[in-house]
Design a binder for these strands. Structure first.
Lengths: 191, 191
DNA sequence: CAGTTCCATTGACTTTGGTTAAGTAATCAC
DNA sequence: GTGATTACTTAACCAAAGTCAATGGAACTG
């Protein structure tokens, strides 16, 4: 279970004995059944997650509709928007599949970073990488039509399509389910 | 000049003597004339910027059009997407106004973080904060109409509207200049 | 200061997504 | 397994953004 985390970290740095110890000491694995709700609107969040296996969706309600923010799958980190703030959440987090995750909390994080500064340094680098990746996603979204967004999703995260209901994908793409249905039809006819 | 940086950092932590020293030692101020190009397509980037005064726009070319990624103003950090990668840039960075910025580079960063671990810890926290803010922006964008996006921009960054030409704002909002023109007309008529 | 270029606006027309409603297919619960 | 709920598709209609073209004005240049 913990080796998945080391595998992920090895993309960013050389795994030293110290890092291995840091992960081994500071990592708690939890498993969640499909349908589990990790956080609901109004809830206080005290946990963040690194997904080892499974799929978590974050969403919120706007105009009575669920708006999907993100689908988190293997090797992705889920940090609730209100993590560490002690403020009530505006978002939901739910498991779309049985999910295995490493769970962190602010206290544990703090202790671990104090004991293993190398891990905090690595966290900074990873965070900065995530910022750049997010910016790329955002920019692609802004400069694409819904049809292009859908095609790009099929290309970059092909598995999602099998794992997630279509109307949730629609809201993830910022369109209505009916439109996604039409887009799919359009694409088929083009071929 | 450097006090602006401390002012910014004070939003995240208590400014210790150590931090003050770290900033004082590691900060180099540069000024740029309006129209200066900090990075062009194909260029290698070796610098990042913290804007003390002025405005920088990042954009790229797609289908022969400039697509504005971001307008950076006071207290914002500009990290080129290819920073530290040594790969040619797909983006441009240009100063829309005379600009004063603190300039960093990978070597300086590394040395400073080594000497002042506290600063790296702070950087991690700020990076994580930026991730969450980005996610909020992205989500707002996805769940809004172009008109709502424009109104929200007027509300959240009212000064931009005076500082930046309208067709660049249009591309920043992901729409055509003609559409922004019509949206503005619509808004006026509603009042 | 004249000429050019760039920018914002407007109009006619096209394309595409939103809305509403209905019908069919798939899934869930008992 | 059957009924109920939920998910997906289709169609007709509407609203808004894209496209193309033209115009007037502002800003830049020699």
């Amino acid at each position: 279970m913990k080796s998945e985390i080391l595998k992920y970290l090895s993309k960013y740095t050389v795994i030293t004995k110290e890092l291995e110890n840091a992960i081994s000491e500071s990592t708690f694995i939890k498993t969640f059944k499909k349908g589990s709700v990790l956080l609901k609107e109004g809830g206080i969040s005290n946990e963040c997650y690194f997904i080892i296996k499974g799929c978590v969706r974050s969403y919120f309600l706007k105009d009575g509709e669920e708006k999907t923010i993100e689908f988190y799958t293997e090797e992705q980190s889920v940090v609730p928007a209100n993590y560490e703030t002690l403020k009530p959440s505006e978002h939901y987090l739910e498991c779309l599949e049985d999910t295995i995750a490493s769970v962190g909390n602010p206290k544990l994080e703090k202790e671990t970073f104090q004991k293993y500064p190398q891990l905090e340094s690595l966290s900074r680098i990873i965070a900065e990488t995530i910022i750049l990746k997010q910016q790329v996603s955002f920019t692609e979204f802004k400069t694409s039509t819904p049809e292009e967004r859908y095609l790009s999703m099929l290309k970059n995260r092909p598995a999602l399509h099998q794992r997630v209901p279509q109307h949730q994908i629609a809201s993830y793409l910022g369109i209505k389910p009916e439109s996604l249905s039409r887009i799919r039809k359009r694409i088929i006819n083009k071929k």
